[in-house]
Amino acid sequence: MRRRKLLGYGAAGLGAAALTLFAGWWQVDGPGASVAAGQRPLPLGEMAFRLTDHEGRMVGPEMLIGRPSLVFFGFTYCPEVCPTTLSDISLWLDGLGEDAGRLNVVLITVDPERDTMEALSNYVEYFHPAIQGWTGTDHEIAQAVEGFRARYEKVPLEGGGYTMNHTAGVFLFDAGGRHVSIIDYHEPREFALPKIRRAMEASATGSS
């Protein structure tokens, strides 16, 4: 009796393990895989979107080619993640000193409804002067997010209004527009700076 019970547990255990493996496959490699999982952003040269920067200029991914770039998604009604990311980036740029001038640094809003050109302009001036803000139509923002293999979603708030969930990492590209790496949200400065320097070096060797 006892033995049978143990066998029963064993079978249940195997069943659970198989289910876990299947769930893992489904989420990582199978049809349940999210777009972002394991997918690298397209090279900037293969992306296609038209946005407006915080000074009203028409911009697109091709304008980032020629210099190494840091690109990230956010929105200015974000009380937590975005100011933290922006102040992290400002600190990294300060750490790079004059080299910061050799980078494109772009915040693409995932909340174009509230982040008009004026709202972005008003916001980015509080951070490092190299940081640009890009906004545009819902369709063009969606195109941009797709190109970076990033994600975003609108979430209604209790008590009215809404907030945005979004990919919070900072995408690094070399001067040729090739994706080099991602700096995860809140990654310490001692890891972030070498990653940026690597993107800059990759650019130097890539262009020679």
Binding site: S34, A36, A37, E80, V81, A150, R151, Y152, V155, E158, G159, T163, N165, H166, T167, A168, G169, I182, D184, Y185
Partner: peptide, 20 residues
């Protein structure tokens, strides 16, 4: 009007969200 404690979390795909 509405102060509340929220938690920021980041999922495996790098998407962050906030919840009470």
């Amino acid at each position: 009007m509405m102060p509340d404690i929220h938690r920021t979390t980041t999922d495996a795909q790098g998407m962050t969200s906030m919840a009470p």
